[in-house]
Structures are given as C-alpha cells and as structure tokens.
Computed example of a mutant assay.
Amino acid sequence: MDIRVFLLAIAAITVGLVELVVGGILPVIADDLHVSIATAGQLITIFALVYAVSGPVLLSLTAKMERKKLYLIALSVFFIGNVFTYFSPTFTLMMVARVLTAASAALVIVLSLTITARISLPEKRAKALGYIYMGISSSLVLGVPIGIVLTNAFGWRSVFLGIAILSLGSIALISKFLDEIPTGHVQPLSEQVKALGNKKIIFAHLATMFMLAGHYTVYAYFTPFLEETMQLSPYWISIFYFIFGLAAVSGGAFGGSLASKIGSTKSILFILGAFALSLFILPYMTFSTPVFLIIMVIWGALSWSLAPPQQDYIIQSDPASSDIHQSFNNSALQVGIAIGSGVGGVVYNQTGSVTVMPSVGGIIVLIAFICAAISLSIAVEKTRSRKAQKQTVYE
C-alpha cells in the first residue's frame, strides 16, 4: 500500500475517534459538568449535525486552496478543538468545542478520501479508498471501548487530550511525507450546486443513506436484542461487540478489494443484497451461538463494505464534481446513522420488542438496493444514449 494512503488512514482514525467516544462516557461527563445524561447526549447530536453539513460547505469554500495546506489547517483546528474540550469548565463551552472538532473532522475525512482518490492509480483506487474507510469504521467501532478504558484510568478529559496528541502526530507525518497537491480544475460553487441535480449520483447518495439507516436500526439497539433473544450477560455482550467490531473494521478493505476484482457496480449490488439478507435471517439464527456469530460477522463486515465501491462509482460517474460528491456521500452516511437510530427507537416504542428490528432494517436496506439499481440503470441508459448518438453521426 502507498505509504501516503496509510498516513491518511491514520489521520482518519484519529479524527474519527472523537465522534462516538462520548457515547460510552456520557454519565461521567454529565456528572462532571452538572447536566442530565439526556442533555449530555446532545454532544453527540450537535457533532453529527455539524459534521453532516460542514463537510460539503467547507470543501466548496476552500476549493482553491492547495490540498496539503488545507489538510494541515484542518488537523490544526481539530487539535485546538480537542484541547478546548479538555479545558472546558462548562457544558456550553464543550458544545462550542464539539462544533470545532466536528467541522474540522468532516473536512479531514473528506480530504482523506479525495486526496486518496487523486494519488491512487484508477485500478487501485477502490482498494485504497477501502483502507480509508477501514480507518473510519475502526475509529467509530473501537472509540467507545477505548474511551471507557481511558476514562476509568485517568478521567474523561484524558480521552480528548489523547486524541489531541494523536492529531499532533498526524500533523507531523503529513507534513513530512505528503507532497503538495494542487487543486486542479475548480468548478464555481454554482456549478457544484448544479451537480446535485445529477439523478444518477443523487440515488447513489440515497443508497448510502438508506443502507446505514437500515444498519443502525438494528445496531443502535443490539444490546437489548442480545439480551432478549439470547439472554447474554454484559460480559458476553461486550465479547460479541468486540467480534462485531473486528468484522466491521475489515469491511472497508473487503469492499475495496471486491470492487477491484469484479468492478464497483457489481460490488454495490452484491453488498446491498447480501447485507439485506443477513439482516432478515439474523433473528432466526439465535438458536445456536456459533451459527449466530457467523451471520453476525458477515453482517458486521458488510456494514462498512459499501463505501469504497460507492465512492469509486461516484468518481467514475462525475469526475469534475467528484470532490463535492464524495463529501455529500460522507454526509449521507451520517444522516443515515441518525435516521436508523431514530427508526429503531420508534419501532422499539411501538412494539416493545427488538426482534422485529432486523426485518425493519432489512426492508430499509432493500430501499437502498432499489436506489442503487435506479442509479446504475441511469448510468447504463446514458451510455446507450451516447453510443446511439455516435452511431447516428457515423451513419
């Protein structure tokens, strides 16, 4: 693997840690800042909202800035935001710090993706993007247990100090090993906004959003699912989460490798179809722990496999606007997480049972499959149209 891609993946891991790490230490933060747990939970909400919006906006506003310089500025702001979090004496100031870290993290992630796409050979691009997403998924999955361990040992503020130190390491490595990257052709903001009218890519974004929504409809309530269906103790639930996390971390690399072998379009449909199937059969596999673990590992690996082929497909579909579309696709991912968590909550409140959630999640993923199929059919239709036009001119 290109050492530069490896360094970008490390930076993605660093900034990704800060998003969900709060989830596992909310009671401690709430107690220290003298707010309720529900109020402290807004630290996650504000981060997700700012992250989803700021990525595309900041990418457009900084379109003419040299990429390495912009990357280092974003990492520096991220460092400042975490130091600010470490010293925040009140909840209000911590919310301000979360806005800083969310905006800068969103820019770092989308720059990691766009820079990786530029420095990678076309035939290796999907695989390289898979490594970036492996970094993102590993930070989201492993951030919570890491945060709990550090909090128990050194207090919750040490978590953000540690992330700040890691970001300094990323700044040093990027400064030394990443060459300057020119902006290339920059479309005016008005043209970038018009690019959102591309139905083919809009349906690709919707596929990303609905897949993550279907996933988090189940994953956000996986603990009560395991308690209700398999009567697992907290110890074994943590083991299951760890196994799931390892599978999810491998998902990005799997998706990238699959796209390199069979192509991005085939990979997208295969992953979405297999993912929906894994959710539908999940509740029926609880009769046997080994069988359930196999299906759970497949579910976990597929949960982060779509992104690399999807990003590669977007780049191929609209190269001129690929940067802004990569950013929007990353935002769609965040919106999907929020939607899925909300849908899961509604289903749980209405039914009082978590056993139906995998079926609901599977249906939502089927919607993602339909969106992807529509996007791909538009792509095929446009290709046929161009061939017909060429044939007409030839005749």
Score class of each variant (00 low, 15 high):
residue 343 V to L: 12
residue 182 P to H: 06
residue 101 T to R: 03
residue 385 S to Q: 13
residue 176 K to D: 07
residue 126 A to V: 10
residue 337 I to T: 04
residue 211 M to C: 07
residue 165 I to F: 09
residue 186 V to E: 03
residue 142 L to H: 02
residue 255 G to Q: 04
residue 272 L to V: 11
residue 197 G to M: 09
residue 246 L to I: 13
residue 258 L to Q: 07
residue 382 K to D: 15
residue 267 S to I: 13
residue 97 A to C: 09
residue 320 A to L: 04
residue 342 G to F: 05
residue 101 T to C: 09
residue 214 G to E: 01
residue 165 I to D: 13
residue 237 I to V: 15
residue 189 L to M: 15
residue 373 A to C: 09
residue 190 S to E: 14
residue 1 M to Y: 09
residue 56 P to L: 10
residue 212 L to Y: 07
residue 361 G to C: 04
residue 171 I to P: 00
residue 134 M to H: 00
residue 81 G to M: 03
residue 131 Y to H: 05
residue 97 A to E: 05
residue 53 V to M: 05
residue 187 Q to Y: 03
residue 174 I to T: 08
residue 340 G to D: 02
residue 203 F to P: 04
residue 280 F to Q: 06
residue 300 G to W: 05
residue 85 T to E: 14
residue 102 A to C: 13
residue 119 I to S: 10
residue 66 E to S: 07
residue 280 F to D: 01
residue 183 T to I: 04
residue 96 V to E: 06
residue 31 D to R: 15
residue 205 H to S: 14
residue 206 L to M: 13
residue 311 Q to L: 11
residue 132 I to W: 00
residue 287 F to H: 12
residue 130 G to R: 06
residue 133 Y to H: 07
residue 199 K to V: 03
residue 80 I to S: 05
residue 297 V to D: 01
residue 16 G to F: 08
residue 104 S to C: 08
residue 123 E to I: 06
residue 169 G to V: 10
residue 70 L to N: 13
residue 284 Y to W: 08
residue 309 P to E: 14
residue 148 I to W: 05
residue 306 L to G: 02
residue 63 A to R: 11
residue 122 P to E: 12
residue 21 V to Q: 08
residue 308 P to W: 01
residue 54 S to Q: 10
residue 228 E to M: 06
residue 183 T to D: 12
residue 116 T to L: 06
residue 121 L to E: 14
residue 259 A to P: 03
residue 127 K to S: 15
residue 341 S to P: 01
residue 52 A to D: 07
residue 318 D to Y: 00
residue 313 Y to C: 09
residue 353 S to E: 14
residue 76 S to W: 06
residue 52 A to S: 13
residue 332 A to M: 10
